[in-house]
Amino acid sequence: MTGEEPSRTVPDPTDHSPRKVITVPVPSLLAVFAHPDDESLSAGGVLARHASAGARTAVVTATWAEDTPRAAELAEALRILGAGAPRMLGHADARAPHSAPGSPRFCDAPLDDLVGQLVAHIREFRPDIVITHDAYGGLTGHPDHVHTHRVTALALEAAGLERLYPDAGEPWHTRAMYMATHPHSAMAVWGDHWAPTGKAMYTVPDERVTAAVDVRPWLEQKIAAVLAHRTEVTRGAAPGLIAALPAADRELLLSTEWYIRHNPVSTGAAQTELTS
């Protein structure tokens, strides 16, 4: 059961009276990311924003085992963001076999098993919106990110079909999937900071971006969640890059989150032929 979602009030655009407001539901969010820290870097602001408005939020993490230091860091980051307890699928990181001893790499696990695992989380949480990586796997193009995108897209469709994974709970139709991304124009900000890493950057044309969300009111929470991933700060990964920056540069890099919307279920009128 989802219960009633919280609401917020905004000015009614059809009435110029300052007292006139309309009620807008605050959608629940389930974020699905590959590694501990991806949730904070890619969607920490949106998660904090929705949680602060009273919406239900949660995060599924594809890799790393529950008894590892990074799992404890993830728990702290989610506490800061108001996103509940970790939901970890427990598979190994493609580049860190020790992340889940005895478990297959996420990219090597049977696809049907991965989709079934995620369907169970979707049907149990029953989110309005699911957030995940874009088809490139974000800026880095990490193979775990790319595979998480694929598995999430398949699981969203499967979760709404009663004959698929019948033991995973009652069917649930998520209203929208938002894919965390970076537009080409963001490289004017990110490029100088990313270039020293020597890694390729995967971005999309600006016209592909559906939503550019200003998360500055929640930036302090987002940065605290990023820095909670202390292992990654120490080894100089993306959280380490953020930790080394002055406050003004942190704001420049992290104050906007970009998303591409995909509708898992068509809401258009029934057609009698295929159209482009």
Rank of each mutant, 00 (worst) to 15 (best):
H35W: 01
L81A: 03
S185Y: 12
D37K: 02
V226G: 03
Y136G: 14
T61M: 03
A188C: 08
P166A: 14
M88A: 04
P127D: 10
W218F: 10
D37C: 06
R105G: 09
Q117G: 02
R105F: 12
V151M: 05
A269E: 14
L164G: 07
P183V: 06
L29D: 00
A100N: 01
D134W: 07
L227F: 10
L111E: 15
F33T: 04
E273Y: 13
P264Y: 08
A34D: 12
A228S: 09
A83P: 09
R230S: 11
V10G: 03
L161H: 11
R49S: 15
K199Y: 12
D38E: 08
L114K: 00
T23V: 12
P217Y: 01
S103A: 15
Q117N: 04
G44C: 08
R8T: 15
D112G: 08
S103C: 02
V215R: 12
R235M: 09
Q221R: 12
T2L: 11
Y202E: 09
P239C: 03
C107Q: 07
L139Q: 10
A72M: 01
P264S: 06
A58M: 01
H142D: 00
P25E: 06
L118T: 09
A224C: 09
T2W: 02
D214E: 13
G138K: 06
D12Y: 03
P166N: 04
A212I: 13
A238S: 14
S99W: 01
L227D: 02
V119K: 03
T210M: 00
V189L: 10
S103H: 09
T68S: 10
Y259T: 10
G240Q: 06
I22W: 05
Q271Y: 02
S42I: 05
K20S: 15
M88Y: 03
V115G: 00
R8D: 13
V213M: 13
P101Q: 07
E66T: 09
L41K: 00
I22H: 07
K199T: 03
A34H: 06
W194H: 05
W218C: 14
G137T: 10
E157C: 10
A176C: 10
D206M: 08
F106Y: 06
G240S: 06
K20T: 15
E76N: 10
V215L: 02
A72F: 00
L114R: 00
L161K: 15
P27Y: 07
M88R: 15
V26H: 01
G54Q: 02
D12Q: 07
S266C: 11
K222C: 06
I80P: 04
G102Y: 02
L114Y: 01
K20I: 13
S28P: 08
P205W: 06
A71F: 04
L164M: 14
A228Y: 04
L118Q: 01
V24R: 09
T203G: 08
V151G: 03
L74Q: 04
H229I: 09
E162G: 05
H121I: 01
H50M: 13
T203N: 03
E170K: 14
A248W: 11
G44P: 12
G138M: 04
L41H: 02
A176Y: 02
S276P: 11
T68R: 12
